[in-house]
Write a protein that binds this DNA or RNA. Structure first.
Lengths: 343, 343
DNA sequence: ATGAAAGCGCTAACAT
DNA sequence: ATGTTAGCGCTTTCAT
């Protein structure tokens, strides 16, 4: 004999009031309820250990206080911080988070959007890491508002974005190298297919320009976001006898490979040659302590994304017909993670 | 004018059948439905882009295909793997996961159990890292089945556990050191308040014994799970001139501290002195590449926990009155993460 | 200040 | 083979 959870109805019966009254009291909508019944109902609810059934509630209110978080892989150290930021902000407003790993697979992304829609989440925070840009159909079934983190993505229902100023980020990074006295800074880029990559290169160009340094094509190599490529690029620079004294890398994987090639060639990093990269994928600075990086504020991105979403959700409750096509966009700055050179 | 999602009712009307029929077809309970109507209904559902409302469904079926995952902090590298394992297994059976960070705070743990109960999750996977052992009240309101991961914990409704054989783990670890030729192995333990800690020490003792080595008290130091303590303990060993040639540490934090102290004293690790630890908190091997560790199979723990839970949930559907007091327990082995010594 | 009643969208007997 | 019906537990007008 399974003891069923206590319902509003039983409380109403025991308190000798209607379920409507109980409901109002339990939801603090009791502007016009006598203090006497209020206390009585509250006491009984407590005594009977009442737990509201949010399914029933959601069925009528049409919101669940739950948001979905779609990301490629929580094991990739880039994402736990985002997830934590989002959860912290969500729980502040008593929202829960359903989290989903897609491995950057389009099919799975779509499947999760479907599932989350069925679960009637109030919104979705969407993160992907792939360099794939662009079109994706199949998201159309959903009517759930979406916030994008870090990368743009052409899907429906996007009501907000939390991005990073990549141009500024590499500008700041290259400037840091300049401040440390390096003058001949090479740039190893990954693929150039994304705006992110183009922005990062642009920041490099700007930093040189603002320091009266000329941008030279032979100091720039374009490849892919792999450590293997970082090594190859360095070896190519060396072979071509490009007289660089520092390298700024398109991401941390490239930087790791570059450092390895440099060390294998007998250089000391960063004493002989300064290396910086974007710490956006693998927290390279843990693996390679001598690496100074430009780090994305992941926790904050998650936090702000959740905030954006919750604000939108709660606002919508007031003005239902408002199908605002406006996309809120927040652009965050990066931080420098400065490592001590290994003495 | 907001376009409302299509309901089963509208589909029934359009197909000129009853909602019951539609429901059965959509749920593959259509043993006795003519293929003709079946096809018709399916076609209409597809055309109208039907998305089931799981709130309504859950309200009657009393399950949500959602499970809660409570852990201290997803940013701690110990947990993403668990989370991923759990999610992978859950999504296999079309379950979703709500994830919660407690920072090991008892109040928050309880609050989350409440929230998850209200959301009618079908079960909870519970992980904590604190060395606190024992009693916790306030979980009693919930009737949700709980699976414990990694540490035991005295709370109600636990129907299963996924643990690690710590005795065996340190036994294997110490044996590895022995195989590498080290003979005089010291042990730096954290607190001894947990069974985990006692088991690890016991494994060390056993390994020595099985190799005809005598256990000596002066080779063992007990402190706390902090890198600071690892350093202190090493310095104490050194000062006392204990002739150790290797150290096995109670966890990875301790190992990091120990290695630091060793290096500061001019030793090479692991060439002069071998060091091992449990890679259970901070993936020390990333920070300290020369460290060989005993690693918990976190992914598998998450996976198996979800599996245990889902099996229990689906079994319960068959035999409702079965209030099995049996606690399923799975004990997993650890793996050795072997690092190349830095050449 | 409180109650009656009508659902929210779906499932699950029980009829037919 | 399909329809009728009675809820699941809660919120929310609208009465009183």
């Amino acid at each position: 004999m399974v003891k069923m959870p206590v319902t509003i109805k039983e409380i109403a019966r025991e308190a000798e009031v209607s379920t409507a009254t109980v409901s109002m009291i339990l939801n603090n909508k009791d502007k016009s309820i006598s203090e006497a019944t209020r206390q009585k109902v509250l006491a009984i609810a407590k005594k009977r250990n009442y737990i509201p059934n949010t399914m029933a509630r959601s069925l009528v209110t049409r919101h669940t206080r739950t948001i979905g978080l779609i990301m490629p892989d929580i094991v990739n150290p880039f994402f736990p911080e985002i997830a934590r930021g989002a959860e912290d902000r969500a729980s502040l407003s008593r929202y829960s988070i359903i989290y989903c790993n897609t491995d950057d697979n389009l099919m799975r992304e779509e499947a999760y959007v479907d599932i989350l829609t069925e679960k009637m989440v109030d919104g979705i925070i969407f993160t992907h890491s792939a360099d794939r840009e662009g079109e994706a159909d199949g998201f159309k079934r959903s009517r759930v508002p979406i916030i994008l983190i870090d990368r743009d993505y052409d899907i429906p229902n996007v009501i907000g974005k939390v991005l990073v100023d990549n141009t500024k980020a590499s500008y700041v990074g290259v400037n840091y190298l300049l401040d440390r006295g390096y003058r001949k800074i090479a740039y190893i880029a990954g693929s150039m297919h994304t705006q992110t990559a183009r922005d990062r290169l642009e920041g490099y160009r700007k930093a040189l320009h603002h320091n009266q340094l000329v941008f030279k094509d032979e100091f720039v190599k374009i490849g892919e976001y792999k450590s293997q490529w970082g090594s190859e690029a360095v070896n190519a620079f060396l072979k071509e006898k490009i007289p660089f004294d520092a390298i700024f890398c398109g991401n941390d994987l490239i930087a790791i490979g570059a450092i390895k090639a440099l060390k294998d060639s007998g250089y000391k990093v960063p004493d002989d040659i300064g290396v910086m990269g974007f710490d956006d994928i693998y927290m390279a600075s843990m693996v390679e302590p001598s690496l100074t990086t430009v780090k994305q504020p992941n926790y904050e991105m998650g936090y702000r994304a959740a905030e954006l979403l919750i604000n939108a959700i709660e606002k919508k409750e007031l003005s239902v017909d408002n199908q605002s096509t406006k996309v809120d966009t927040i652009i965050l700055d990066t931080e420098l993670t400065i490592r001590q050179s290994t003495k």
